[in-house]
């Protein structure tokens, strides 16, 4: 269980099992992206992606296509966003699939896109400015 109130060290973030990140849903009762998803969920995902060697461009392209798709389109054509990640980064792909699996409607999907965007922005920031 990921604790949204805990300050995780970088090593702890790298060790988190993020396939459980979306178990309690992506959207909070107030309609916003859940705190754990948009908080520790994005920073830990960014750290894990960098540690895995996932190129920022791959996440950026996945984000571009995720934004342009609806949930229905992505379910019909998962390769739109997963094609490059699937090829060589199965652990990170598993996190993304867990997020997609947790999407019940378009609102959930937009929250998933926001999680991916947050992950991308943090990755870019770390790569440009250092950890």
């Amino acid at each position: 269980m990921i604790d949204p109130n805990k300050d995780y060290t970088k090593d702890e973030q790298l060790a988190l099992d993020l396939t459980t990140l979306f178990d309690d849903g992506l959207v909070a009762p107030d309609g916003q992206v859940s705190e754990v998803v948009r908080g520790i969920g994005t920073t830990a995902a960014a750290h894990q992606a960098i540690a895995a060697g996932v190129p920022l461009a791959f996440i950026g392209l996945a984000l571009t296509n995720a934004r342009e798709n609806t949930l229905e389109t992505t379910r019909a054509f998962p390769e739109d966003i997963m094609a490059e990640i699937d090829n060589a980064y199965p652990r990170f792909a598993a996190i993304m699939y867990a997020g997609l699996d947790a999407c019940g409607d378009e609102q959930d999907y937009r929250a998933f896109v926001q999680w991916l965007e947050g992950t991308y922005i943090i990755m870019r920031s770390i790569e440009e400015h250092g950890p």
């Binding site: 229905e72 389109t73 997963m82 699937d86 997609l100």
Partner: peptide, 13 residues
């Protein structure tokens, strides 16, 4: 994006 009609779930790696 245009709507696509399918209920197929993503295929896992």
């Amino acid at each position: 994006a245009p709507q696509q009609s399918s209920a197929v779930k993503p295929v896992r790696a």
